[in-house]
Amino acid sequence: MPETTHTLTIPSSLRFLHDVRQFVEKHALEAGFSQPTVNAIKIAVDEACTNIIKHSYAGDTSQEVEVELALTAGHLQVCLRDEGEPFDPSTYQEPDLARLTERRRPGGLGVHLMRRCMDEVQYRTDQDFNEVCLTKRLNSDSAV
């Protein structure tokens, strides 16, 4: 099966998260994923996009986020690209659940959800852009 790609570019504002989720849901359902698996993919992409807008662009709404969804035999990959500050995944620490409520603003929940919802999460920083790619296999059983 040849690769099919769909692209959505949004302004770097949290107002557009709903549009990103709708875009992902439409194409993931068309690709044959079950609704619970589509729900998991939507959450992961939402979290990735939120992190870009909040952290990479630090709330600057004048930038753009590109969301590219690629369907190939057996899997779906969503890559989000931005031109803000890169995220270094080596600095990420999995949240300590037992101590989460002790901190008023717990961090790291989004990345944790992305990893729980997807089969692969990969970060890449090029000279001109940052990219996070989220992959889900058609036969994956992690769903929401």
């Binding site: 998260l17 989720r21 939507k42 959450i43 939402d46 979290e47 939120t50 989460l100 409520t101 002790e102 901190r103 008023r104 603003r105 717990p106 929940l109 989004g110 944790h112 959800l113």
Partner: peptide, 17 residues
Amino acid sequence: EYISSAGLGVFMAYVEE
């Protein structure tokens, strides 16, 4: 209909207090 970690974080932020 939907919740992401930002929504969950609100509960976390206030429950202890």
